[in-house]
């Protein structure tokens, strides 16, 4: 199978960036940094699974970004608040659910979020995911588990007052964060 070129993978990279980063302008910056780094280090690609290689670059760049951010600035911006406050407004229908999910994803631990995005959205195998994030596969599984259970918990909370109680409580994943 022919490996896709970097340009062909931009939509995937952009999607991953947006899943990792709260703000879509920052996501675009992350994407650009990733492309610059990828072209600058093209020789470091071993010729297999270019997508995973690019995802690794982006993951690492994002870690650096988070590390800097931690010491320099508050992450919350006004838009985030406005979205939050709209979550439960009446009549927002499906959009509210999507928005709840978005908030839940934002609330995930960044490490767990990266795993969930690579597995659930990008469809990488657990092994690929472990390679991309440079962590053991067991860690991939535990982060995936915690991410999924957190989302279930969060959404069940949101749904509790939006639905008519048609969701039986035992449909909700039971979870204690460790």
């Amino acid at each position: 199978m022919k490996e896709p070129g970097i340009l062909e993978l931009i939509p995937n990279l952009r999607r991953y960036a947006r899943a990792l980063v709260r703000n879509s302008h920052d996501a675009e910056d992350l994407l650009q940094d990733c492309l610059v780094s990828a072209y600058g280090n093209a020789q470091s690609w071993r010729g297999i699974n270019r997508k995973a290689w690019l995802m690794t670059i982006m993951t690492n760049l994002n870690y650096n970004r988070l590390r800097k951010q931690r010491s320099t600035r508050a992450i919350f911006d006004e838009d985030t608040h406005d979205i939050a406050q709209t979550v439960a407004s009446p009549g927002s229908g499906d959009f509210a659910t999507q928005d709840s999910l978005h908030r839940a994803v934002e609330l995930l631990d960044p490490d767990q979020r990266a795993v969930l995005m690579l597995v659930a959205i990008e469809g990488h195998s657990y092994g690929e995911c472990a390679d991309i994030l440079q962590i053991p596969q067991g860690t991939v599984m535990s982060r995936l588990s915690r991410a999924r259970k957190f989302l279930a918990q969060y959404l069940s909370m949101q749904n509790g007052d939006d639905t008519d109680g048609t969701k039986a409580p035992n449909v909700i994943a039971l979870w204690r964060p460790k």
Partner: peptide
């Protein structure tokens, strides 16, 4: 529930 999440996440983060 997890399957629903997967679908919803793919909807939420489309290829761009």
């Amino acid at each position: 529930n997890w399957q629903t999440q997967n679908n919803a996440l793919r909807d939420l983060f489309p290829l761009v």
